[in-house]
Amino acid sequence: MRGSFAGFEGSAVIKRVIGLPGDSVSVETPQGDRPTVLVRPADGSGTFTVNNPRWRGRVGTRVLGCCSSDGSAGKRSQTRWSTVPDDSYWVIGDNWGGSDDSRTYGFMKTSDIRGVAIWRLTPLPSFGLLENADISLDPAP
């Protein structure tokens, strides 16, 4: 992604898309080593928990729950759910505790997305195609 995602003007950043236009997103304040990220797809098919094993052990200082009407945590209102507007996405980093993402800056505009990451270059032991097989949407309890 390259563009005007607040704070990253002109810089390339890689984030994982969690919420598509029309989806509702919520991030519960972390309990332990990772956040609880919930998604309600626009098609009304239920509520799902995003299961990303990469979040385990990736704790930093940015352990924000969310979401306010603009998709961020900083302006959180009484409601914890936020609906992704048309022409936007809700994104989060794999190192969620050390990442500035939609919890910080709100929704990312479609026009700011420049590509899809398919290769990991570093660290060298992880060089190769990016795999998403271990990430899933599980029915929320």
Rank of each mutant, 00 (worst) to 15 (best):
P85F: 01
G57D: 07
N52Y: 11
W81S: 00
W55H: 14
S82N: 02
R80L: 00
G44K: 03
W55R: 09
G32C: 12
T104D: 09
V50G: 13
T104R: 15
S45D: 05
K75R: 05
W90H: 08
Q78H: 05
D70I: 10
G74N: 12
K75H: 01
D94Q: 04
A42L: 03
G65F: 06
R76Q: 02
T47E: 06
T36N: 02
P41L: 02
G98T: 08
S68I: 01
V39H: 06
W96A: 05
G60T: 10
P35V: 01
G71K: 04
W55P: 07
P41E: 12
Q31N: 15
G57K: 10
D86W: 03
G71W: 04
G32M: 13
R62Q: 07
R40I: 01
G106C: 11
D94L: 05
Y89H: 12
Y105T: 04
G98V: 05
F48H: 05
R56G: 08
W81C: 00
R34Q: 12
S77R: 10
G71A: 09
D101T: 14
G98E: 15
T61R: 15
R62A: 06
K75W: 01
R58W: 05
R34C: 03
S72R: 12
N52W: 10
Y105H: 15
Y89N: 07
Y89W: 11
W90C: 13
Y89A: 10
S69N: 03
G46Q: 02
C66W: 00
R76S: 02
T79I: 07
V50A: 06
T83C: 03
Q78G: 09
S102W: 06
P85I: 03
L64S: 03
A42C: 07
C66G: 08
S77L: 02
V91Q: 04
T83K: 02
P53R: 11
R54W: 07
T79R: 07
Q78C: 01
D100T: 15
D43M: 09
C66S: 07
S69P: 12
T61L: 06
D94K: 02
V63I: 11
P41V: 07
A42H: 13
D86N: 00
C66N: 04
P30T: 08
F48S: 07
S102E: 13
D43G: 11
L38M: 03
L38C: 02
W90S: 11
N52H: 15
G65T: 07
